[in-house]
């Protein structure tokens, strides 16, 4: 046996746990789920081929549409908020000040808290009566109301019922999602440190201020990282599950927080419509691919790679 062949064989042997794991736990279930999406399948019985029926039914399913719209709205709201918070934090933490590493740790730590305890914690934060947010907000609103009474406004300004008002439940989740910005923040921070110093020096010579430097140097140089985090953000937002599942059972109030992944889960494991759930999974995959490709296309115009 030649040396290179032996090396190949040894290499394959060493990666074999991963290959086997990939085939058994990823490739097989993935391809099986394509097949199941064309079947009536309840997990317990052999799947029965039904052709496009699941996809046809999905098109006509109001709840499917509701969950899809809810999810897209959530993604549309949480993505910019998450990005702004992460970039803002990264830029502040990039400042050369005393205790920099401590601040970095402090702002990163929240993203280590697992979803379930986080959801339980925020249930209290958002509590309409005893919640800390409204405890701060309500007196503020009262002051605003009394100030407005000068211009003829007479009435109460009530702090939002975050958890029980259909209009405020999604914004509440968006606020929460910013809590987990730590990971993206870390990546932005790495990106910021890659921005070549000479560019700033050149900008200084041209008399650029902070805003002008941020807009013309930092953000363009950061754009590949923004693109990456944007795509990861889209994927994450479309899959939102754990926190609304705990905080808003059944997508209450009035299904305003019933998200795509929650409906998929209910179909698969509560209603035992695994075929239907698989079809939903593949539609979500298609949507994710489309959005990712769109993000890439868009990026051709706005993203600047350092090397090119």
């Amino acid at each position: 046996m030649s040396n290179s062949k032996r090396e190949t064989r040894t290499a394959l042997l060493f990666v074999s746990p991963w290959i086997i794991g990939f085939l058994v736990f990823l490739a097989y279930p993935l391809s099986a789920s394509i097949y199941y999406s064309f079947c009536n399948y309840s997990v317990l019985k052999a799947p029965v081929w039904v052709g496009m029926a699941n996809y046809r039914n999905l098109v006509q399913d109001d709840v499917f549409r509701t969950t899809l719209v809810n999810t897209l709205i959530y993604a549309l709201m949480s993505l910019p908020v998450g990005m702004a918070v992460a970039i803002g934090l990264a830029m502040m933490l990039n400042a050369k000040i005393k205790g920099q590493t401590i601040y970095r740790t402090i702002f990163y730590v929240p993203s280590l808290v697992p979803g379930v305890p986080l959801a339980v914690l925020w249930l209290w934060v958002f509590n309409g009566k005893q919640g800390i947010i409204n405890a701060v907000l309500q007196p503020l609103l009262d002051h605003v109301a009394s100030a407005l009474s000068i211009v003829g406004f007479h009435g109460h300004l009530n702090a939002p019922q975050w958890l029980s008002d259909a209009a405020w439940a999604k914004p509440a989740l968006v606020i929460m999602s910013a809590w987990g910005a730590g990971n993206a923040m870390l990546i932005y921070l790495a990106g910021l440190q890659d921005v070549p110093q000479p560019l700033y020096e050149a900008a200084d010579l041209d008399g650029a201020g902070w805003w002008s430097k941020t807009w013309n140097v930092t953000l363009p140089m950061l754009s590949p990282v923004i693109l990456f985090n944007g795509i990861m953000g889209i994927i994450g937002a479309l899959q939102v599950f754990t926190i609304p599942y705990i905080m808003f059972p059944g997508g209450s109030p009035a299904r305003s927080t019933y998200f795509y992944a929650m409906y998929l889960y209910d179909n698969a494991f509560v209603y035992l419509k695994m075929g239907y759930a698989c079809a939903m999974g593949w539609i979500m995959f298609a949507i994710t691919v489309i959005l990712t490709v769109a993000a890439h296309k868009l990026s051709d115009r706005y993203v600047h790679y350092g090397g090119s």
């Binding site: 509590n127 309409g128 009566k129 005893q130 009530n158 019922q161 975050w162 958890l163 029980s164 008002d165 109030p253």
Partner: peptide, 10 residues
């Protein structure tokens, strides 16, 4: 509706 949900939220 909003009064009831305010009450329940506590």
């Amino acid at each position: 509706a909003s009064e009831l949900s305010t009450f329940r939220s506590g």
